[in-house]
């Protein structure tokens, strides 16, 4: 078995008396798209926030491997998870910098590199031009991603003026501009129409194959999950109930039970999860 890039071991997260995540362990591998699914309140977002440093777990270990160095995420300061451990994320409710231009959004993502190149902005202030090369490289990387998401012609308008679907793609592109090893997407397909979500699926696969970045995503749209993910982890009531390739998850009885309630009394063949869960989740 290959060496996982992210290893979550016995993760526990308590909010007062409520145990939101109870002893969850899983691995994420380099060349895979891993989906984290589960009914509402299963603890997906909590796991996600622990991994990306927005919550500090009550117990457990999260280890990220970057090259041959490892980082213990539960001990890192929030912003260092992106800076050192190379984990980027997007948000369920899009968090762009709305009054800055599309290009600026992507340049800010490369802040740390530019700071280093410009001597913490001092060279620039003194009129030295050392940082200009770094800046033009940053623009090149940004252009590359803008071409991928078809926003190159809108690079100079304010990000807040973009349509919703483009904002979602831009947020993913911005996360990718931090040159991450693991990209965490929080419901990337929420609010997208059919053609937009197929563009999104293409982009995520492209990130896995060309940018060589592992992807962890939370998603409610089972169509997207089953189509693109290589590996699925299912949570229910804070505990992991299944872990495997999508084909196996579709047939897993525990998963079907979690989504549809006590259903095995019927004795019939289990309904396919993609059809049922969509019905269950659409209300």
């Amino acid at each position: 078995m290959k060496n996982p890039i992210l290893r979550v071991e016995n993760l526990i997260m308590r909010f007062g008396g409520l145990v939101a995540v109870d002893d969850v362990s899983f691995n994420i591998f380099e060349d895979r798209i891993t989906a984290l699914i589960g009914p509402n309140g299963a603890g997906k977002t909590t796991v996600f926030n622990c991994v990306t440093g927005f919550y500090r777990p009550s117990a457990g270990q999260i280890t990220m491997r970057v090259g041959d160095r490892t980082h213990r995420l539960e001990k890192l300061e929030g912003f260092k998870i992106a800076q050192k451990a190379k984990i980027a994320r997007t948000f369920q409710n899009i968090r762009l910098f709305p009054r800055m231009s599309v290009l600026e959004n992507l340049i800010i993502a490369q802040h740390n590199e530019l700071m280093r190149a410009s001597g913490f902005s001092l060279y620039g202030l003194l009129g030295l031009s050392g940082h200009l090369k770094a800046e033009s490289n940053a623009v090149k990387l940004a252009e590359n991603w803008l071409n991928k998401i078809n926003l190159i012609d809108l690079a100079d308008i304010e990000a807040g003026e973009l349509p919703y679907g483009s904002q979602r793609l831009l947020e993913i592109a911005r996360a990718m501009c931090t040159k991450p090893k693991l990209l965490c997407l929080d419901e990337p397909a929420a609010g997208l129409n059919a053609s937009e979500s197929s563009d999104l699926a293409k982009l995520i696969k492209d990130i896995r194959d060309r940018a060589k970045c592992a992807v962890l995503l939370i998603e409610h749209d089972m169509g997207v999950v089953m189509k693109i993910s290589d590996h699925v982890i299912v949570l229910d009531h804070g505990a992991k109930i299944a872990d495997g390739p999508p084909v196996a998850i579709k047939k897993n009885r525990a998963v079907i039970k979690a989504y549809l309630g006590e259903d095995d009394e019927n004795g019939g063949s289990p309904p396919s999860i993609s059809a049922c869960s969509r019905n269950a989740l659409e209300n």
Binding site: T52, G53, F54, G78, F79, K80, I81, A82, Q83, A88, R89, F91, R95, L96, F97, P98, R99, M100, E104, I107, I108, A109, H111, N112, L114, M115, S118, F120, S121, G124, H131, R174, A175, T178
Partner: peptide
Amino acid sequence: PVGRAWEALREDEIACRSLG
């Protein structure tokens, strides 16, 4: 870079943190 980071901080501090 510093000035852009200031403006980004004004727009959304949480997003800034997620970008390192």
